[in-house]
Design a protein around this nucleic acid. Structure first.
Lengths: 214, 214
DNA sequence: TAGATTGTTAATCGATTAACAATC
DNA sequence: TAGATTGTTAATCGATTAACAATC
């Protein structure tokens, strides 16, 4: 994972650009469904609310995907952006914390994110093995590290209670996992080589509250 | 909600600042729990990873909450930021879509977000009234508008399937709701006076995938 | 008072937008 | 070829950081 890919030849891509990538792909996916074959940055601008200039700048961070005088081929661009984000590969995920939210996320991943596979589910002993998700049993947290030694695991979804968050995180990091999808409303302390994507529900709700009062 | 509050005397506060507010409050809340009474921007900087300069700039968008030579009183600042975000008020929420995710969110709000009250729950007829959350029955979507006429409703949590998202959104907007907490992985089309806070799970997961491949 | 730390103005940096030459 | 639209360089705008006078 450290070859000199398109992403790395150029100087580091900025955070705002990366944050926009999934949305580009999502819109292109919609266009594909509607049978649209090509699109110009101007049309995409109208659709997405970014300037055409920004769209072209964003894409040119990764390569020249368009054609002068023509625009972009929708399916080609969709695929390219997918590749840039690594969505051409498969990922094995474990779910840590299998309450309502953990179950919802496992269901979501299973149903909508085909290249992400639920490899294992972990929770405290009294919840462990009392429930089951498809063909995956819920195991005791204590067996997490051993499990990761035995099976490939690329990321962990953290859906444990606030109070368990840092401890669960430490366990997962200790097991060698490098990607965390964090739903715990806590900012986790992490080593540098582990990437954590936060879904801070509480922050999000409070921001909504702010805007209602503007 | 249009008085000349502190937020509005000064020129419009920028989006990045607003996004940081909930996180400030969260950290201050932690400090309070630990019994810390005062904190300087320098200490907070260490803790949160923003520069001290940025912290002072951010706060001074809303007023002068500190004291030269002393720093900030933790509990006072916590409360002020809460006020700025409108967290001194109560909000009535309806949950639209009561699958696993809707149930998880209702549970989360009920347990952790005390000033947000679950006023009603809506889903399609065959799910309606088959389940129940605390003292709230699940009603048919068709009754949503009438419900909002009768009861105060400040926001709607959308947790319906992708395919139903825009329709559910239209229903909610038609019922006069001005705040939407959107979990549907779809960008909703909205009138200008409705604010929508998105939790795009799919985008978030794909961003994580990107970073794993850097 | 002296020391500390804010509030605020000025300087820098980075991201967005505009412009246009390259080219399909 | 003429028209359209990209890729890319240059200009602008906004956000972050630095600096320092005000003041507790």
């Amino acid at each position: 994972m450290k070859e000199n890919t398109a992403q790395e030849k150029k100087k580091r891509v900025s955070k705002p650009v990366i944050k926009r990538l999934p949305r580009y792909r999502r819109f292109l996916g919609e266009l594909m469904k509607e049978g649209v074959e090509r699109i110009s940055s101007a049309k995409l601008s109208e659709l997405m609310g970014y300037t055409a200039s920004q769209i072209r700048q964003d894409l040119n961070n990764f390569g020249a995907f368009g054609q002068q005088g023509y625009g972009y081929k929708v399916d080609f661009l969709y695929e390219q952006i997918g590749n840039i984000m690594g969505l051409d590969k498969e990922y094995y995920i474990i779910v840590v914390g299998f309450g309502r939210l953990g179950q919802a996320m496992a269901g979501y991943i299973d149903q909508y994110e085909k290249q992400f596979k639920i490899a294992g589910i972990f929770d405290v002993p009294d919840k462990a093995s009392s429930i089951e998700f498809k063909d995956v049993y819920v195991s005791d947290m204590d067996s997490l590290k051993a499990f990761c030694k035995k099976h490939r695991v690329d990321m962990a979804v953290l859906t444990v209670p606030r109070s368990e968050a840092q401890h669960a995180c430490d366990t997962v990091v200790d097991a060698g996992i490098k990607g965390i999808w964090n739903f715990t409303s806590v900012d986790l302390k992490l080593p540098e080589d582990v990437y954590c994507e936060n879904v801070h529900m509480s922050d999000s709700l409070h921001e909504l509250s702010y805007h209602l009062n503007e």
